[in-house]
Design a protein around this nucleic acid. Structure first.
Length: 212
DNA sequence: GAACCGATTGCCT
DNA sequence: GGCAATCGGTTCG
């Protein structure tokens, strides 16, 4: 199977309703280049976090130093540290001024499995990015990536002294799309804002019950 | 300033 | 199934 296109999505893709962006991100591809090593995977599982009206969102009580980025321009990375141990990568959504983000929870690895395996330790290939923390570890993503653009033109080398690149490109749309409750949250546990390709072998958990 | 919490993971019994 | 790890952000006094 030929690799999917490497061209980043347009920024306006992300400047829309968060639930729409979340559903359409399933099947797209996430790319990183760290010290010249290319990694990519097909996005197979995401969760939508809606912003000020979503109690489960970090932006649920208005902007703070951490969540402020979700109120800013769409199409940039929101990276946070989970349980003091793991990093999680979101794509900021909605027009500037309105909060929203999509958490990338799992990828099917496509490119750079050797580098992913070195960062994560050995295990089944299909599960190397099966979880938000695993995904970031495998692709080399940490807090320093917070705020990097995921869409539009790639960063110039001059603006990227760490030699870091990240972007989201189009991919193969899923044959089916499953919806269900979000994982690991304590508030708004009912909202069916987790979307995944139920036919993927790389999910962090079984698909939710809804089929869209 | 201090206490508490968490959009997780891997290892333990 | 249970639980520790580990720390930035948030909240409270």
């Amino acid at each position: 199977m030929p690799p999917p296109p490497r061209r980043p999505l347009a920024r306006r893709f992300f400047a829309r309703d968060t639930l729409t962006v979340a559903r359409e991100l399933v099947g797209c591809t996430l790319w990183t280049v760290v010290r010249g090593r290319v990694c990519a995977g097909r996005i197979v599982e995401v969760e939508a976090y809606l912003g000020e009206r979503d109690p489960a969102s970090h932006a649920g009580r208005g902007p703070t130093p951490r969540s402020g980025i979700m109120f800013g321009p769409p199409g940039v990375a929101y990276v946070y540290l989970s349980y003091g141990v793991h990093h999680c990568l979101n794509a900021v959504t909605e027009p500037e001024g309105r909060a929203g983000a999509v958490l990338l929870r799992a990828l099917e690895p496509l490119v750079g499995l050797a580098a992913m395996g070195e960062r994560r330790g050995r295990g089944p290939d299909a599960l190397v990015c099966a979880g938000p923390g695993r995904l970031c570890r495998a692709l080399g993503i940490d807090l320093a990536w917070n705020g990097l653009p995921l869409a539009g033109r790639l960063e110039s080398a001059a603006n990227n002294p760490a030699g870091r690149r990240v972007w989201i490109a189009a991919g193969r749309a899923p044959g089916r799309l499953a919806a269900g409750p979000r994982i690991g949250i304590r508030r708004a546990v009912e909202a069916p804002y987790r979307f995944c390709d139920p036919d993927s072998p790389s999910l962090s958990r079984p698909p939710g019950p809804g089929i869209l």
